[in-house]
Design a protein around this nucleic acid. Structure first.
Lengths: 255, 255
DNA sequence: TTCGCTCAAATGTCCGTACATTTAACCTAG
DNA sequence: CTAGGTTAAATGTACGGACATTTGAGCGAA
């Protein structure tokens, strides 16, 4: 193994240089699941074990690598199910938790162009987009009207899927190997248009949720969801140390 | 200084025992703002500096004590302004950030009993509560209708405050020495009643926000706020690592 | 084949030393 | 009295060694 050299007179401490180098090598995928042990790094970089441990401390605290007595050190695997987070995911998860059956009525599933949406996805206005419009029902009652646009270049494999009983994120992971990891949501309170009210089967107020979902930094979905206000509530806890965190979303049946 | 002894054959590591002991002494207020230096602890507990640093690592990471080269170590003071967090706080902060002037019209400020609210605060139904009802305006236009109940035993000093131009949390900190640190919010989408619409000066949908605020674990406020849907949006970022976090709240002027 | 045992490997704990760097108090010269 | 340098104190960095504890792989016996 070729010894790697660190700047011993550099402005940055040795452990910081080692940490940066290890992060770089981790990102490049140089280590598979394996990760070199402390003594291996001591030999490779020709520094003391204390310095190695100082560098590893942060990687271990962040859960990027796992270590324990006697065990082979490993690169922590990315969580198997990288949940699409946020209010929308929580909504449908909580419907399931409440024991209500979910299914959808698919209104549209095709490829079309939409300049406004394409721009929100950071794409050219004429880029073809897969468009999916569903009415989502929980316990047999309409809950939400859901419209999603995805770049056709990524989402074309979804065009022949029957979305009546399956979720978008499940299919996106299985067929396009895409998992949302970051995103952005905006929640408004609105009164639905008459046509929307007819679909939702209610004349109440509604939440209007716009979401931009990204996978590895690349925009993957633009979504607009209209959720019946009488069946939905956002619930959050806040503490001084952790800030504002969405905890549960409740979805019930209107009386 | 009397040497303190740690269990050298105990099951817990020395640094863990030291950490626990220091936390105990911190909680007892034994140190004022000062905090012993590493070498002082080495002498006092008769252990090595490495072990002391291992114990101090967590206290410093948690910001309980602060340390830097050359400086006297200190116990970190509790943050001077412990912000009331959550959607509501963000709302009024963002109004200010947008440069809109804020003021309120006080509809009521008195002491009354309310069995339902008292129970939500974990109090007996006949407990007297300070009740404050305000119409909040931003840029001269109605933005929110705000109703707050607080235990009179804590909030009595607020009864002679003019809330036209001052915030509840400011006065609560100044006059009752109370700062919210945790809480719970529930956000609904509703269509306001006619009387509420008259107050808000609009016939749009609205957010209905219920909040229970606590200070040191003790319920301090129950609040119900109705915010005009055309002037308000919740915005959140979500990432796999940090979860769902409220980032900004926008409040504009209706066209 | 399978159950234990042994043993190498890896991290955890603890000690000691040396020197660098930064801060703030102190002191002195003007 | 003040400006500036000096110095003690404190933490940061880096090295080294020693031993304890845990895990898992490999091996041998039943």
């Amino acid at each position: 193994m070729a010894a790697r050299t660190l700047e011993r007179d550099g402005t940055a401490p040795l452990w910081r240089q080692l940490l940066d180098d290890l992060v770089r090598r981790l990102d490049s995928g140089e280590f598979g699941d394996q990760f070199p042990g402390e003594l291996a790094l001591v030999a490779e970089y020709e520094i003391s074990r204390s310095t190695v441990r100082q560098a590893l401390r942060q990687l271990r605290a962040d859960g990027i690598v796992v270590a324990a007595r006697g065990r082979q050190p490993r690169v922590a695997p990315a969580p198997e199910i990288q949940q699409p987070l946020g209010a929308l995911y929580s909504l449908f998860a909580s419907v399931e938790a409440a024991g209500l059956s979910q299914h959808s009525v698919v209104h549209a599933l095709d490829v079309r162009a939409d300049g406004v949406v394409a721009e929100r996805l950071g794409l050219d206005g004429s880029t073809p987009l897969v468009y999916l419009e569903r009415l989502r029902l929980a316990g047999g009652e309409p809950l939400a009207l859901d419209r999603v646009w995805l770049p056709a270049s990524l989402a074309a494999p979804l065009l022949d899927v029957d979305f009546t009983h399956t979720g978008l994120y499940t299919e996106l992971a299985a067929r396009a190997d895409l998992r949302l990891d970051t995103g952005h949501e905006e929640v408004h309170a609105v009164i639905p248009t008459e046509s929307e009210q007819a679909h939702l089967g209610a004349t109440t107020a509604a939440f209007s949720i716009n979401r931009l979902g990204r996978a590895q930094g690349k925009p993957v979905e633009w979504r607009h969801t209209l959720v019946r206000g009488d069946r939905f509530a956002l619930t959050a806890e806040f503490t001084a140390s952790t800030g504002y965190r969405l905890t549960t979303v409740t979805a019930g049946i209107a009386p």
